[in-house]
């Protein structure tokens, strides 16, 4: 793409009506792989893969827990990257991405916490263990809730989105620091607990469904966020002509 080609694409991509129309088609390209991958991961994870020799069948929760834990991190990093784009190039699409991605990321972080706790009960005997990963996941959930609360608290949508962009950037810088300090704290606290996935090396047929699940969840995240963006876009541009045009005859 030559310089001007990219610039034209960048501005057209940035223009909201274009995004609103095109995103309907893109959604399909995200939904199909999501369904296929997650379907394969669930079917394989629940039926095909033999039970773990240590934990038996309860380890099958991994096929939900790890993909959502991966998604919680992926989502927040994506929000921070969009934050940089929103603040540096003042691209409205990036602002809208952050606002749409936050609730999705938060719900998958919550899902990772719940499935981790459910899985922890039979393994360690208590629902909540101050395990390094679970604790970092909990703090990550608070970071997400902070972004969502900040967006709802600020009146004007533009300022709210840009404030969330900045908060996401500050947050993503702190995520590794928080994780490192929690790991230091847990190793100091009670010695290294057995990590959730157990020390055993994952052999191939257990691993493939996991990777497929993680990829499938990422596509799902993209699909959900895309729909969230369309709603945000309509809300922020509700008074503009292009929305009227598309809605009245749409």
């Amino acid at each position: 793409m030559t310089g001007t080609g990219f610039k034209r694409w960048f501005h057209r991509f940035g223009s909201l009506p274009y995004f609103y129309d095109v995103s309907a088609r893109w959604a399909v390209w995200l939904a199909v792989p999501a369904v296929v991958l997650i379907g394969y991961a669930l079917v394989a994870g629940l039926f095909v893969v033999p039970p773990d020799y240590q934990q038996g069948d309860v380890f099958r929760i991994i096929y939900i827990h790890v993909p959502s834990a991966w998604l919680s991190l992926f989502g927040y990093t994506a929000m921070a990257v969009a934050g940089v784009v929103a603040l540096v190039w003042r691209l409205k699409i990036a602002e809208i991405f952050i606002v749409a991605a936050a609730p999705v990321g938060a719900s998958f972080t919550f899902l990772a916490l719940v499935t981790g706790a459910i899985w922890g009960e039979p393994t360690w005997g208590t629902y909540w263990v101050w395990d390094a990963r679970l604790t970092s996941e909990l703090i990550l959930l608070f970071l997400y809730l902070g972004v969502i609360a900040l967006h709802q608290a600020i009146e004007s949508p533009r300022t709210a989105a840009r404030a969330c962009a900045l908060l996401s950037i500050v947050g993503v810088i702190n995520v590794p620091i928080i994780h490192y300090s929690v790991v230091w704290w847990t190793t100091l606290h009670q010695g290294s607990t057995v990590s959730l996935t157990g020390g055993s090396k994952m052999d191939a047929d257990m691993l493939w469904p996991l990777l497929a699940g993680a990829l499938g969840f990422t596509f799902l995240f993209g699909w959900l966020t895309l729909w969230g963006m369309r709603v945000q876009l309509l809300w922020r541009e509700r008074r503009s002509r292009w929305v009227m045009k598309r809605i009245t005859h749409g």
């Binding site: 069948d57 309860v58 099958r60 929760i61 919550f110 719940v114 499935t115 039979p122």
Partner: peptide
């Protein structure tokens, strides 16, 4: 039976289904 862990495995998958469905339903 999930090797005796049915309640754990299915509750985890159940909550996962609820979360995903909610995330699909709300934007729609």
């Amino acid at each position: 039976a999930m090797g005796g862990y049915a309640s754990y495995v299915w509750s985890a998958y159940g909550i996962a289904a609820v979360v995903i469905v909610a995330n699909i339903a709300v934007p729609f």
